[in-house]
């Protein structure tokens, strides 16, 4: 495949209190084998050598599992490839000459830090409210003392695959965090270990979610469509069920 010449329109914003704007950049000679973030690395490298501040964005593992990368690409969180984080999105999916628009997650509960970087500590606080099983180190029974039906283990795993990136919030017109919260609720609701605390957990996590300023779910299902781990909105139904029971 031949190299791509692309145009970027990138949201630049110095910090949460200043005004942001789109800035245009050229991204010439991009290899189709590059990941989206490697393409941004190339653009940034050039900016740095000109003593200009590069485009700030987050990334760490660059293999789709840490959840650090977070950007809206042409209007879609993580871009249009299904089940893919921005770091795993490769440039072979773009056309030569294309203009790519890149924006941060936009949600009141995710205050902007700089350019494409937002503050997602609200997610940590929701988990702190109850996203765990209360078991002290050393007090566990033998692992085989707890039997888990294979189907339940699989359902728990499907929900547990959440990487906490926040794409679900960014995609939702209400900036709802129901998919994120539902994934932890669902994981523990399908396991016997999670049973004793299920009511307290559902109530506490939902209350914290509301306190953080996330919106309500109106079943648009955008979250499911953009989730890089393809978590089903089944977990939202389960969250509602667990919350009603509490």
């Amino acid at each position: 495949m031949s190299l791509l010449n692309l145009k970027l329109r990138v949201w630049r914003q110095k910090n949460g209190t200043s005004k942001g704007a789109f800035v245009n950049y050229d991204a010439p000679n991009i290899s189709p084998d590059m990941s989206f973030l490697e393409m941004l690395d190339v653009v940034n490298e050039k900016l740095i050598t000109q003593n200009q501040e590069p485009i700030a964005f987050e990334s760490d593992c660059r293999e789709g599992i840490c959840g650090a990368c977070s950007m809206v690409i042409n209007g879609i969180p993580h871009g249009k490839e299904r089940g893919t984080t921005a770091c795993q999105l490769h440039m072979r999916h773009f056309k030569n000459g294309e203009t790519i628009v890149i924006e941060p997650w936009r949600a009141r509960a995710f205050p902007l830090i700089k350019d494409l970087v937002v503050d997602r500590t609200a997610f940590d606080r929701i988990q702190q409210a109850g996203g765990f099983v209360s078991v002290n180190t050393g007090s566990a029974p033998d692992a085989h003392a707890i039997l888990v039906h294979k189907d339940n283990a699989e359902k728990a795993f499907d929900a547990a695959a959440c990487i906490g990136c926040g794409a679900c919030v960014a995609a939702c017109k209400n900036a709802s965090a129901m998919l994120f919260v539902g994934s932890k609720i669902s994981q523990l609701a399908h396991l016997p270990q999670g049973d004793p605390e299920r009511k307290r957990r559902a109530k506490a996590m939902v209350m914290q979610m509301d306190a953080e300023g996330f919106g309500s779910c109106t079943n648009t299902l955008e979250c499911e469509a953009v989730c890089p781990k393809e978590i089903s909105t089944r977990v939202i139904a389960e969250l509602n069920w667990e919350f009603m029971r509490s």
Binding site: F132, G138, A140, I146, V148, A153, A160, Q187, L191, Q193
Partner: peptide
């Protein structure tokens, strides 16, 4: 033991083990 008690969803066999 500790991780199972925390709800880590390890792979299981049909018998639940």
């Amino acid at each position: 033991d500790q991780c199972v008690a925390q709800g880590v969803p390890f792979a299981r066999e049909y018998g639940g083990l």
